[in-house]
Design a protein around this nucleic acid. Structure first.
Length: 716
DNA sequence: CTAGGGTTAG
């Protein structure tokens, strides 16, 4: 979709044609055009805005540039070339207008469209009853519907028809009723009739019907107003037809209608859905420059955009902007920003924002609490998570099914087995919140990561008894657990029944099988490999070829590259880690070194080795035990060469293993310590520092290398 | 869903 929209922006909409409409007012005189000029003040270089490409000259001749044309110079000259400056620029919107004598160009109407008020309809009871009959009739039976229509209790005049139209539920019936009114031809169908019908169609995600009605309005000379356009735009958005949404927005300007803030923020959200941060900001800035004081909904859209980009500066910008405009965030804005904080990896700031929200007198809802619980779980902030859970109960804050499941997942993240069991039992006892596949997955995750294979298997059996389907994540948790318990026959059985039950193994499941291969022995290896073969043939073929002594490095490289490029980004490093472990455990260390080399080359271990003048550090926190051993050996070899060549070393050499924040983490620090001991390497754990840091001085390393060289020499 | 815009789960 994103590609589609950018294509639309690039071709400047030359190919869009609308039905002729004669009754349109004259085009607006370029509400946005001035901005091209205006924005040159933001350019630090003295260059003028980029020239339009020759092929696009024609579209420039139009009286009113399309929105995309107007956006383009902006994003070319300012935003996309200097992404880091954008916030700095955006934080000073008031500086945009250098010449106060010129009127501000307007991109939106500061006045919201007025709605006509309904007058009381004395026939309301009869007509509601009639509408109910229409709603209740068999949707497949058109004849029955027609028959009921004939029995309308009062004449279908304007007000009566409107009332019924508003009361129909399904889009099919709304459309049938609308067409019936049209054929009766008792009064002209005004805009509101189209708007009400479109709203119903939008509910049914029927964009084609909506667009047909819009074109009919144009043909019949019925005015399209802001309500029409915002309904069309949001309908296109819900149907993921973003290019259509933009087309209709641009049509407003072309026909001389100015969007109000509702239509405008609907379009902001279109660009937000496309993750076009620059376009969102440029629209926002233009709106601001037109004197718009955005309301909380517009800020919620901005917050979402930055959250999805994980852009903390952007989130802060939204908060500051609201503050400086005196806009008080509402519940939805807080929810959006909290979630954004989570995506930007700022649990502490999420926590303080939540407190700020409470201080301002807003009561959290299910979404607020789901977001926070999830953030604390992912951050492994057990204390805050449990505290929040207590407060939820104490204050009687609202809870729903998703929140229950999120609490279970949080327990899985934190290894809170008892709490999860209690909650799970609660859910079973309730009528409305029976555990579903999400709930069972969380339980499988808890038992799986806790190594409790019996309880995990009991969950698995219970699921099939209750008819709750296992999903791929639950399957992965279970297989991981059975693998660790060395219950390989059970593992095979679970895998096969899952695949037969329709689960499509994903890369995470393959990674899980691969890790089981790395630590099991004998015939078990082949059993697991047979499962893996069903999920990913290439991976098994790759392992087989690495086992062959005469497979050349160049072939390893090509095959591994092929494997990685077919693997989800998140699963690439785990794959490489497991493969290294597999070959270390089989005493094929050379293969392990090759794989680590290739993994580093393909960017799976960024920052594996970092250097400053004083310190060189090996960062193995994202490595498996075998990969960490391999990396340490590799590093020692390198250091040995450097010492022998009498090259300069920094004062401090260190290795960082990470503390292993997960309750069940394998203890990379311990494994590393024992390996260093085996090599008699002089790395000592710094007890005073958190996060598993092993440190050696330059002198220790030099003397260690020399003594090793001496002992090797004496053996020779 | 009483004509229009924004927020919940591996």
């Amino acid at each position: 979709m994103a590609a589609k929209l950018s294509a639309v922006l690039d071709v400047h909409h030359c190919n869009i044609s609308y039905p002729s409409d004669k009754n349109q007012p004259p085009h607006f005189t370029s509400p946005l055009r001035i901005s091209t000029k205006k924005f040159t003040i933001f350019c630090t270089s003295s260059k003028s805005p980029p020239k339009t490409a020759p092929g696009k000259a024609e579209s420039r001749k139009r009286k009113t540039p399309s929105l995309s044309e107007q956006l383009k110079p902006l994003s070319n000259t300012i935003l996309s070339d200097r992404p880091n400056e954008s916030h700095q620029l955006l934080s000073k919107p008031k500086s945009v207008w250098v010449n106060p004598t010129k009127p501000k160009p307007s991109v939106l109407s500061l006045q919201r469209q007025k709605r006509s008020s309904y007058s009381y309809n004395p026939q309301i009871r009869d007509l509601k009853h009639f509408a109910k009959k229409l709603n209740d009739c068999d949707p497949a039976d058109d004849a029955a519907f027609q028959a009921i229509l004939e029995e309308i209790p009062h004449p279908p005049n304007r007000d009566n028809a409107l009332l019924v139209l508003n009361s129909l539920r399904s889009w099919q019936k709304t459309l049938l009723f609308f067409n019936w009114i049209k054929t009766l031809n008792l009064f002209p169908l005004e805009t509101i009739f189209y708007n009400v019908t479109m709203k119903s169609l939008r509910f049914g995600r029927q964009f084609q019907h909506v667009e047909n009605l819009a074109n009919e309005m144009i043909e019949n000379g019925v005015e399209l107003d802001n309500i029409t356009y915002s309904t069309i735009i949001t309908c296109a958005k819900r149907c993921n037809l973003f290019d259509k949404a933009v087309q209709w927005f641009e049509r407003m300007y072309k026909t001389g209608l100015m969007p109000d803030e509702v239509t405008y923020s609907a379009v902001l959200d279109v660009y937000a859905k496309l993750r076009k941060v620059e376009e969102v900001m440029s629209l926002y800035e233009r709106g601001r420059a037109s004197g718009w004081k955005p309301d909380p909904i517009a800020f919620a859209v901005l917050g979402k955009v930055f959250g999805e980009a994980g852009d903390y500066d952007g989130i802060r910008y939204v908060l500051e902007e609201m503050k400086s405009l005196g806009v008080q965030p509402n519940l939805v804005v807080y929810n959006t920003l909290l979630e954004a904080m989570g995506k930007a990896g700022k649990p502490g700031l999420a926590r303080s924002l939540f407190e700020e929200m409470l201080d301002s007198g807003i009561t959290p809802n299910e979404k607020t609490l789901t977001a926070l619980i999830r953030i604390y779980g992912k951050a492994r902030w057990a204390k805050d998570a449990l505290e929040l859970w207590d407060r939820m109960r104490l204050n009687g804050w609202p809870v729903d099914f998703i929140l229950y499941n999120s609490l279970l997942s949080m327990c899985a993240d934190l290894g809170l087995e008892e709490e999860a069991e209690r909650l799970f039992e609660d859910m079973k006892g309730s009528e409305s919140r029976k555990p579903d596949s999400w709930s069972y997955t969380a339980m499988l995750n808890i038992y799986g990561s806790g190594g409790n294979a019996d309880k995990a298997m009991r969950m698995f059996e219970e699921m099939s008894e209750k008819g709750v389907e296992l999903n791929v994540m639950g399957c992965t948790c279970l297989i991981q657990c059975l693998g660790r318990a060395k219950r390989i026959d059970d593992l095979v059985q679970v895998f096969e029944s899952s695949v037969n039950g329709g689960i499509k193994p994903d890369d995470r499941l393959c990674g899980c099988l691969l890790s089981v291969v790395s630590y099991c022995e004998g015939e078990d290896v082949n059993k697991v490999l047979a499962c893996l073969h069903k999920a990913n043939q290439n991976l098994v073929a790759f392992i087989k070829s690495l086992e062959e002594e005469d497979t050349k490095f160049e072939n390893v490289k090509q095959e591994f590259k092929g494997i990685l490029s077919n693997t989800a980004v998140d699963a690439r490093r785990p794959f490489c880690n497991c493969l290294i472990d597999i070959f270390r455990n089989r005493n094929l260390r050379e293969r392990a070194h090759e794989l680590l080399y290739l993994g580093t080359m393909y960017g799976l271990y960024p920052g594996l080795h970092t250097r400053t003048e004083e310190e060189w550090r090996l960062n193995v926190r994202s490595l498996s035990v075998g990969a960490a051993h391999t990396a340490l050996e590799e590093w020692m070899q390198t250091l040995t060469k450097l010492v022998q060549r009498r090259e300069a070393l920094p004062e401090v050499l260190s290795a960082s293993t990470g503390a292993g924040s997960h309750k069940y983490s394998q203890g990379l620090a311990n494994a590393f310590a024992s390996h260093a001991e085996k090599l008699a390497a002089p790395f000592k754990l710094r007890e005073d520092k958190a996060g598993g840091l092993f440190v050696a001085t330059r002198e220790d390393v030099i003397s260690w290398v020399q003594s090793r060289a001496a002992s090797l020499a004496s053996i020779a």
